[in-house]
Design a protein around this nucleic acid. Sequence first.
DNA 1: GTCTATACGCAGATAGAC
DNA 2: GTCTATCTGCGTATAGAC
Lengths: 200, 200
Amino acid sequence: MPDDRNSPKQVSSSGRERILDEAEHLFHTRGYNTVTMRDIAQAVGIRQASLYYHFPSKEQLFVAVTERMFERHRLGLQQTISENEDNLRSQLSAVGAWFISQPPIHFLSMVHTDMPLLDAENTARLSACSSECIFDPICQIFAQAQQRGEIRNVRPQLLAGFFLSVIESLPFATTFANAAPKEFIVNEMIAVLLDGLMRD
Amino acid sequence: MPDDRNSPKQVSSSGRERILDEAEHLFHTRGYNTVTMRDIAQAVGIRQASLYYHFPSKEQLFVAVTERMFERHRLGLQQTISENEDNLRSQLSAVGAWFISQPPIHFLSMVHTDMPLLDAENTARLSACSSECIFDPICQIFAQAQQRGEIRNVRPQLLAGFFLSVIESLPFATTFANAAPKEFIVNEMIAVLLDGLMRD
DNA sequence: GTCTATACGCAGATAGAC
DNA sequence: GTCTATCTGCGTATAGAC
């Protein structure tokens, strides 16, 4: 917590943070376009116009929300990966558990539906942020496993995309009536992936 | 082509069909919410209000468009699968080629962003339609390969979800600067999948 | 920091002429 | 079948009081 002598109350639950929390929940469950500033204000418990004291526009609020979310994933993934440095299987399993523990990103929806509504500058910002915080860490897992000789030489980017696309489809897959729990699906996926990659 | 004696012009390019064509292109590149009836009318070359002669509402137009698209996939998949009955690898490769030949479905975006804006009844219709036309056929491919003893016993639903989630992420994956062509990615995916499933 | 009030534009849909 | 004209509601954003 920053040492801001002028802050009258706790910094941790400042008005701005409460807005970011509620906005994140709404944006990433219903999408940028569908959520209105009134929805967010109502969730926070203030009036719609009051949001504009904290954020200059809906778009800037969305960017702030999304960057904070990506950054949280970057830290979470970094810690998860460093705690399981022994082998690829345990790393992937831990990473899967990390994603399951977080609200779904709905990355494809974000890229396809939300991003095109933003300024070109903000689109570029968020794209870069998503690569650094999510895609690159997963890539590194596979790249390092290859350096250790643990798996065959398939392009890490391909494998990372592979892995993430299945993770992303989990929220949908588990809407089926007879769906298995998320943890089961992820581990099954990892098993299929590795039994094809492992040298016997 | 149906034998409609009263049709004054060719049925193939009737006004209704032209609207469906343009609406499909717009809806499935930009999403239900973002596309306006004026956008569709402009693409067709008529005025916005004229659309309401053919379809009672934007929602019904979207449902008609999406059902027609799913049905096209059902027929395309059926033919593709029947033309490659020998083994799983050639079937999957052909199915991958089929999906690449079609405009992306953006299924996850549709479920996450578009569907919740529709009536519960229409949501149910489209969900059922997507299962019958897309999910079930892919499931059958894997189930039959298991019956032939070609692959291990992993739940076909899991493998179908696996396969489709990667197909769905192709439009995104190929936006990267140094991206490989779609065909390459799909075949690489199939190779990883099968080398883990094939009995050696 | 939050409020009320309001300006402004846009999107879906209807009415009725041709 | 397509048009013009219009109604209605909603969403973002601003102005200014407290």
